[in-house]
Design a protein around this nucleic acid. Structure first.
Lengths: 223, 223
DNA sequence: CGGCTTCTTGATCAAGGTCAACCTTTGTGG
DNA sequence: CCACAAAGGTTGACCTTGATCAAGAAGCCG
């Protein structure tokens, strides 16, 4: 059985969701697993007092809730930001991947390692960079991820994120986020308006934020 | 071939290292892979201006440099903090794990997901918690990891970290770290002296820092 | 036309960074 | 055995960043 056929057999359901749908709740353990087919979503953790940290943005092709079948629980929430389509994969047969599709399993590990790399740079961002640099970096990184998926132009992209979500991703207050956004614009680096990201001076922006280009990740569209 | 035998065949070398040995440098791509056999190490990224972010602590049993064989490059450094022993695994045959030991591969994925979970909580820490809470959380988490490996007592442990490393892990300056350490002591939560961690009031400390117990991770000693 | 939610902006204030001095240890060579 | 150096740790004074709070503008429904 080839990989494509194999994966398509795992598919249980195709679901359409409006924005702000909670796909996964922290603490759930249903063992279900999804892939994001179209649209944007984000992973987050909530804290007492309405505080929240956005952990990562999910783009088409990303897996949602892999923890569930593999470790038993998901400890974060996942929520859509736009209209989205997700595929539910049946968890039970999914575990067979390891025995039956070793190349897929290896690809899965490679993907997880790239995610880890992204988490690492996010830690550097929150631990050691100033507000505006954080924003610049996040925009560059996200734009690069969109490019990989042909969801962006060379220097602009649809960017349907509310500023609340962005500030929670950057560990900033909404107010400080707004100021950083203005600063980025004034330095002529990038603009963010009406859901449109525009990179005005990528070169300067990269050195400003300490952005490191990642290897183009050989993304497997499958899974 | 059973798992233990299989893994032992991968083993190429057993190496002893003094403290402050750089096991892996950011950007290297030798394809070598290690396991930490004994001692402590840490993963980090350096920034221009001598700044640094410590990403994670590595404890006995952890893999070092899995990126190398799987994605081609390692983007972080790894450095020992104590005397340490590491096993080098040959990368070429290691890739055979997926075809030949599916259960091991699945375990590997589960481990990576638990690491990701830890990275997530670290992001919450740096993005949304105050200095003293960060410290409290990190101490609780690390103590739990030591307990899993039988390297700690119920409420104390060897803790051979310089304060420099701890502050770089918490995204704090050394001065602020020192103040937080004093505050923890004064609140009667924990003390950290002469390389000894002592948890004085775990209950209060957990609610103070927002610590969530993780499922006891079914660690596989292998790999 | 309200009444949401999102965004913007300003005033104030606290957390934590920076810098610098000083104090311990620990180690080393004379 | 001592003098000195180097590394790690402690503390205080001062200043910057960014949080908090609050008030207002701007869309966007129903």
């Amino acid at each position: 059985v080839d990989e494509l056929t194999y994966v398509s057999r795992l598919k249980a359901e195709h679901i359409r969701l409006p924005p702000r749908s909670h796909v996964v709740e922290a603490g759930s353990n249903g063992g279900i697993l999804y892939t994001l087919y179209s649209g944007w979503a984000f992973r987050y953790k909530s804290l007492p007092g309405g505080r929240r940290q956005v952990l990562d943005f999910l783009l088409p092709g990303d897996l949602i809730g892999l923890q569930s079948p593999m470790t038993g629980t998901v400890r974060h929430g996942v929520c859509t930001m736009t209209d989205a389509e997700i595929c539910a994969l049946r968890a039970q047969p999914f575990r067979g991947v390891f025995a039956e599709q070793p190349a897929l399993a290896a690809g899965l590990v490679a993907t997880l390692l790239l995610d880890e790399e992204r988490a690492d740079t996010r830690l550097v961002l929150l631990g050691r960079q100033r507000a505006t640099q954080r924003l610049a970096y996040l925009l560059l990184e996200t734009h690069a991820r969109l490019l990989e998926r042909d969801l962006a132009d060379e220097d602009s992209a649809e960017f349907p994120l509310t500023y609340d979500i962005l500030s929670d991703a950057l560990g900033l207050s909404r107010a400080q986020f707004a100021r950083s956004r203005v600063e980025l614009r004034q330095r002529g680096l990038a603009s963010l308006e009406n859901g449109q990201l525009r990179l005005l001076d990528r070169q300067t922006m990269q050195s400003f934020s300490g952005y490191e280009e990642l290897a183009p990740s050989h993304r497997r569209a499958i899974l």
